[in-house]
Structure formats: structure tokens, C-alpha cells
Design a protein around this nucleic acid. Structure first.
Lengths: 212, 212
DNA sequence: CAGTTCACTGAATGACCTTTCAATCAATAA
DNA sequence: TTATTGATTGAAAGGTCATTCAGTGAACTG
């Protein structure tokens, strides 16, 4: 493996260990030594690859955010052409194992909660939310052209956005098992069905979003 | 003032300082000395009234939870008799200054994020959610009797529950100004209106829930 | 007024953790 | 093989912080 790729690989390994430790011990219980132990390396390594603990956390958030945005783009590209289909694809992704695993959800909620104290966290979290909200608006505008207009579209798009966020918190509280994630997805689908009774979506049971 | 009341008063003062510090510095930045400074007392006092930092945090969560539950009971009692009215009253409360101030929201999100690492936090947070969800279910069942049945009632009640949670996270990220709280409330109202188009609710602009 | 109680103070203690860095080791090049 | 480079290790330094506790003083009590 070329040197550069090896460095990237180790950084990723440490970031993933960081996420695991946050999930297990919370952000207040996160220690550099634990991250290193989970990654199976000496604790000096962490400060070799990351300038400081703070930088490690910032890079961890960046990793989560970039991974989410990449997966969302892929899911949209892979979904059917209708706006309702695309909405359902995004919902499926939001509760998929890849994006909404136990560890990732714990890390996201940790960053949200610290975001008022850490402007860098705040900016990145807000950027992700902005992008997701814009996507919801666009898709719902299209979906409502298909099924009949409403004047409170932006509010209903914000509701979808925040519904997903709230369900993530619920998964954090109750444990993001596969069954719990399916149930969360059903809640979102019920919301979409309430808005678009005409458009019949796929069955939630069917696929655990194997795509992407 | 009788001794017992004075003790309770000081404990409350320290708990409120704790909430303020969490809002400003996050849970990771919370130091006993800061709590004491905000409360305007010497730092030794904190360990005099609370066995430990952990106990201070547990009592802080208990304070938040009890305050919320009490306010919810009052809001329900003060609201009109119809289920839709009561739903709107609860929504108004959830984005009121009393319950959803900047500091309280920051504290709640902090406890949520630490709840996987701290079983005591988790239990209390889940208990609040359980109660709120049960209330949403009951009120929506009644509302749907008034306006027409649906089979996915439990999912739609869960959606309301989690929508509120998600909006709190949004307020945490973007700042819980009065205007932002009103907007969040509008999102909830839009959701309710989408479900119950017949039942006309009050105008959101009208009152900032002065009741309770 | 002397005695007692008790909230309160802040210096001292000791645990814990991040960060630094000299030494070691492995891989590659010469 | 030997030299060089750069990753890795973990001991040590330095700082931060929760917690303890002896002492202070204010408010009651008899």
C-alpha cells in the first residue's frame, strides 16, 4: 500500500474507534487512551495522526458528515425517478445500517449536544441539516406537483427533516436495533402516506436498503 | 425562611446554574467551579449539597423532567376540552419559554446524548418520552374519533412525539430564539393540520402560551 | 453573653488525562 | 549489509479538576 493511503487508512481506523468509544462511554467519557486501545495501537499514535483531541473530534464529525452526504447522493441516484420514490429512498437510507448504526447515532447526538459550545461542530451539523432540508423541500415540491399542491409545503418539509432527527434521538435512547430502525422508518412512511395518500410506496418490510 | 426550604432553594439555585453552564460550555466543559461561580457561591458548596458531580447531574435531569411533567399536566388542565385543542396546548407548551428555553434545550440534548453511557439518565429520559408518547396516542385517538379514523394512529402519534424532539435538536443547533420557537411550533401545527384538516386550531401568532 | 450548630470557604490532596518526546523498531534504499 | 526514513511506543511532564476537610463566622439557644 502506498504511504499516503496507509496514513488515510490509519486515520480512518482511529476515527472509527472514536465513534465506537463515544457510543460506549459518551463524549464526557472519551479518553485518548481508550480510542487507541479500541484501535489496537499505542496511545501515542493518536497524537501522531491528530494534532489534538479536539482535532480528532472535528475530523470524526467531518467523517460522519461526508459519509452521510455521499450516501445520500448515491441513494438518490439509485432510486426511481418519481419524487415520492426518491423520498422513500432517502428515508430508507436514514434508517439503514450503513448510516444509522448504533454507534453513528450516538456520535451524531453527541455532536449536536456539544454544538452550542463548539462553533466548528455547530457549523458542520448545520450544514448537513441545511442540505437535507433543501433536498426534502425540492422532493416534496415535486411530489406535491404530482399529487396536488399545498401552501404549507416548507413547513411540511421541515417536519420530515426534524421527524428524522427526532427518531434518531429516540433510537439513541432506546437502542438502534434492526427492529427499532424498521419501526422508525415505518413512522416516516406513515407521515409520507398521510401527506400523499394517492402515491403508493414500497413496503417497508421488503428491503433493508441493500443499495449503496 | 425555614431551614428545609432554604436547603431546597439553594439546591434549585445550583441546579439552575448547572443548566446554564451546560448550555454555555457543553457537558464536556462543565466544571463544578463554574457552576458555583454562576450561582455566586464558593465551589465547596456544590459538594456540600450534592454528594458528587454525578449526583448533581442526575438531580439536574430529575429537575428538568419533573418540571416538564408538571407543566404538561397544567397545560392539559388549562386547555379546552376537545382533543385537538389539547394537542395544540401541548405543542404550545413544548415550544414555550418556560419549557423550551435555550438553556433547557441544551441540557436535554446533553442528557440524551449521554444516555447510552449512563443508565440513570437513560431511564429518566425514556420515562419522559413514554409518558409524552402515551399522551399523544390518547389525544390523537380522540381527535381521530372526532374527525375520522385511521389505522396507522400509533405511528402518527409517534411521529408527533419525535417531531417535537427533532425540532428541539434543531433549536439547539440554530439557537432557540423566540422567533425560532414560533417557527418550530408552526411546523408542528402544519403537521396537525395535515392530519386534521377539518378541525381549525388557534393561530400560532396569537399567544406565546402565557398560561401555566 | 457563652455555647452550639451549621452553612460556607478555599487551600490542599490526589486522581486522571492530554500532550510531548526520546528511544525503538520496521521497512526500504543504497 | 548498512543507512535512512518514518511510524510506533510508552515513560514522564504538566495541567486540570473533583473531592476532602479544617477552619471561619453567622445565627440561633439557653
Amino acid at each position: 500500500m502506498p504511504k499516503e493511503a496507509q496514513t488515510a487508512q490509519r486515520r480512518r481506523q482511529l476515527i472509527e474507534a472514536t465513534i465506537a468509544v463515544i457510543a460506549k462511554q459518551g463524549l464526557t467519557g472519551l479518553r485518548i487512551a481508550d480510542v487507541a486501545a479500541v484501535a489496537g495501537v499505542s496511545y501515542g499514535v493518536v497524537n501522531f495522526y491528530f494534532k489534538s483531541k479536539d482535532q480528532l473530534l472535528a475530523d470524526t464529525l467531518e467523517h460522519l458528515a461526508a459519509d452521510y452526504e455521499e450516501a445520500a447522493a448515491e441513494a438518490l441516484a439509485a432510486a426511481g425517478p418519481s419524487a415520492v420514490d426518491q423520498l422513500h429512498a432517502v428515508i430508507a437510507l436514514d434508517f439503514s445500517d450503513r448510516i444509522a448504526g448504533r454507534r453513528q447515532i450516538a456520535a451524531w447526538t453527541a455532536f449536536w449536544s456539544e454544538s452550542r459550545a463548539n462553533p466548528a461542530f455547530r457549523r458542520r451539523c448545520v450544514a448537513v441539516q441545511d442540505r437535507f432540508l433543501a433536498m426534502c423541500r425540492r422532493l416534496m415540491r415535486e411530489a406535491l406537483v404530482e399529487t396536488g399542491r399545498r401552501e404549507d409545503l416548507d413547513l411540511l418539509a421541515a417536519a420530515l427533516n426534524n421527524l428524522v432527527t427526532g427518531l434518531w434521538v429516540e433510537l439513541q435512547l432506546r437502542g438502534a436495533t434492526r427492529e427499532a430502525r424498521l419501526e422508525a422508518r415505518r413512522v416516516c412512511v406513515a407521515y409520507l402516506r398521510a401527506l400523499f395518500p394517492q402515491a403508493a410506496p414500497g413496503d417497508v418490510e421488503a428491503d433493508e436498503e441493500t443499495a449503496a
